[in-house]
Amino acid sequence: MSEMTVSHSSTGSKRVPVVELRSLDTLWFQVAGTVCNLACTHCFVSSSPTNHTHENLTLAEIAPFLEEGARLGVKEYYFTGGEPFLNPEMEAILEATLGYGPATVLTNGLLLDPVRCERLAGLAAESDYSLDFRVSMDGYDAESNDPIRGEGTFERILAGIRNLCAAGINPVITVTEVHCENASREGRERFFRLVGELGIDKPRLKILPVFRMGAEAERSGAYESWQKLRAGEAPAEGWLHLQCSACRMVTDQGVWVCPILVNEPEGKMGTTLADTLGGFPLEHPACWTCHAHGVSCRT
């Protein structure tokens, strides 16, 4: 099935492209819900200290998904929020997950004190599987970063990275294209220099485009009406280049198609992973971003 007919009460029915799940490689957890100690102006899920659209996931809630994921052949587990380390069970959740496979945490770096970093390094060393960290920043200095992530955050992010580094953990620096030069060759070189100055001799960097939804829609404008995928326009190899052909996202309210659409109720596909093994209609304009920019949220 590469297309399906979808009915809307207001606009009638139309044909839309559908992506199939070819394998469940990447299982995401919205582990801290949408609660964050920051309120970045580009956050596509508008996370903030008071956003309880999604709540924390407990270890007890996550455990059955780890079991079900293993049966379905999940290859890697990712944790995001909000800020994952606001979840009081985060380290226990990581320890449990590393019994099943590799884990990656997407963090803003503000809660990475030296003692926690030592504990995380211990978890990483004890596991057969990789434990990886992505630390977000949006500029190579306070002037470019702080207007997006908040006053004083640049220095606090650097402190978190230093603490990870001192514990022997080399995080992936994740940067969004909020400033167009971030993804340029010169921009990348600046980030390499910056992390080099922190004592990291193997700089790792991931650059992501922005999704024009949530807070970002207020910052730079929402999607235009032409920014959507249409039936009949599938590439020759189908839609299998999209990350939703190989991932699902668990939140406190069920299983969503991907990490991007958690604030769209219609991105929810079911209650258990088994409910969500079917195709998904690529109707949201964010699906266009994934297609046009070749986005994968995984590292």
Partner: peptide, 18 residues
């Protein structure tokens, strides 16, 4: 229009898209 103050914007509210 919405209240964009991050500390108060979501009290009791959810973000549904924008």
């Amino acid at each position: 229009k919405r209240d964009t103050s991050p500390l108060t914007a979501h009290r009791g509210m959810a973000t549904w898209g924008e």
